[in-house]
Design a protein around this nucleic acid. Structure first.
Lengths: 282, 282
DNA sequence: AGAAAAAATGAAATTTTATTTCATAATTTT
DNA sequence: AAAATTATGAAATAAAATTTCATTTTTTCT
């Protein structure tokens, strides 16, 4: 844990003099890491042993060790955090906030993913007779993207962003088929039903959704993508990006499982697009 | 600069004994931050003053100060970098690599964006009579996503991922229309043509592409989204994610420009979806 | 190659910094 | 209000880092 947070937390377990030390440190931690124990004691108007005791109370070995912890906390700079866009933000500000929040979400999502489930998903995907990706709204584009990727693998793949098509497709699915259902909320009724229908028809259902949602309960494998809420502007933002990163992971797992010869084919697919592009001069 | 990198850089300006110190530090920096100068000297089999001189040569005030720098470098953790997926990676490894590369790309993309251009883009978007988003392949999903977002704003918006439709739409465009053309490579012939057609017909053309591409040259406003190459598996990965983040930025700018009353409407749009979802228990 | 100069190195001394000890002061409990 | 507990700092001690300086090693220049 960050030592600065720790100081704040334990502020009330400290004695009066120790609190003075804490206050000096909190008010200007970057100065403190360059101060000797004597200098800090003087600034806080207490004695050196008090500083020492203060350090020990925070589970450090002594003053130099404490400074080390402090230095590390300061170094952590701005780890990406969700920063909310504010009414009066300049373009620069909201751009930074959005990019940083997105990065923070990716970090969170990565933690919520379980490599075991990814492995199992890659297993079933590589062995599938047919792969279908279903999503609605913002998740539709994720399904769309997945189709675009898996299509390059030369496997039977479809995507639907239409409730009825999804339903028909789910009903017609069979053993050996894999249905990937994508929904951030995991509460979209029609998608939950589609998942359940596909499962009844013996398809393997992979859910890309948040942990513990109704959709998660209907799936054979759940790939949990937990991100902080997309509350800023009432529209999905980070969630779909984290889902796309997961699609990349699945696609990568797929190609790795298929071996190097398969990857040569991918290169051919890419090269086939060349004639549609303007040449690069460099 | 990271002190570990600095040590590596200056390795050949160091004397023989100092290099021994450097090697011990590089091989196990986390041990060193808990060692005294004597302990380190002993481990490197040199004298204490040598350690001290080593520290000074790296522009630190002395050994304790050096340790502080070292601690900070260690705390910085792994700044996100592009790490390439390897044939023998485990699921955990390639998942981490993909997420981290994505984050690294977002960081890069954010730097390549110019807030002035964003501001101008938001300007023209808020004043547009009609907005069209065009993309092909992986960029098609970005266009698709943009439509999804801007549709909520209750403005006339279309998206096309079909060459002919894009062409027809471009030809029919007029003053006051905004055409957003999305292409990572910026070299897709048909898209460059579409951009040029739209421009000839007096539409404002916003290009979401890499700096200095043929597409960029045809646009009224270029939003440069530079990411490191998506070379890993011959398919677009980070590029489309960075583009999506940019769409979020534009959508956010749009709503901020429109004011708070407009945002209440967005909430209504979101709430309208509620009945299609299973209730949340919490 | 060999002498002179320069640079590098470490032992010992010194200085700085941190910690411990212990007496006293402040606070809490009874 | 006395006793017990806890907090505090002065002084002593210990530890760590730095400086000084003599010695060794390396480099440069005949």
């Amino acid at each position: 844990m960050n030592i600065l947070e720790k100081i704040t937390n334990e502020l009330d377990t400290l004695s009066k003099s120790e609190r003075k030390v804490a206050e000096v440190i909190l008010s200007s931690p970057s100065t403190v890491i360059h101060s000797s124990i004597a200098a800090l004691a003087k600034q806080a108007k207490i004695s050196e042993p008090t500083v020492n005791r203060f350090c020990r109370r925070l589970d450090t070995k002594g003053y130099p060790d404490f400074k080390l912890h402090l230095a590390q906390s300061l170094a952590n700079g701005t780890p990406y955090v969700n920063r909310h866009v504010d009414e009066n933000d300049t373009a620069d500000e909201y751009t930074s906030k959005i990019f940083e929040s997105t990065m923070a979400s990716l970090e969170l999502a990565r933690k919520s993913l379980n490599s075991n489930d990814i492995n199992r998903s890659v297993d079933v995907l590589t062995q599938a007779n047919k792969i279908s990706f279903f999503g609605l709204g913002a998740s539709a584009i994720v399904a769309h993207d997945a189709q675009n990727k898996f299509f390059r693998f030369n496997v039977p793949v479809v995507y639907f962003d239409d409730i009825l098509m999804q339903r028909m497709s789910a009903i017609n699915s069979r053993q050996g088929d894999v249905v990937v259902v994508i929904s951030h909320t995991g509460r979209t009724k029609s998608l939950v039903e589609v998942a359940s229908l596909a499962k009844e028809n013996d398809a393997t259902v992979i859910g890309i959704t948040t942990t513990g949602t109704p959709l998660a309960k209907e799936c054979s494998i759940v790939l949990s993508v937990d991100v902080s809420e997309d509350t800023d502007l009432y529209m999905p933002m980070s969630s779909r990006i984290a889902q796309l990163a997961l699609i990349d992971v699945l696609a990568t797992g797929f190609t790795l499982r298929r071996g190097s010869k398969f990857r040569d084919n991918l290169k051919k697919v890419k090269d086939s697009l060349r004639s549609s592009r303007f040449e690069r001069k460099d």
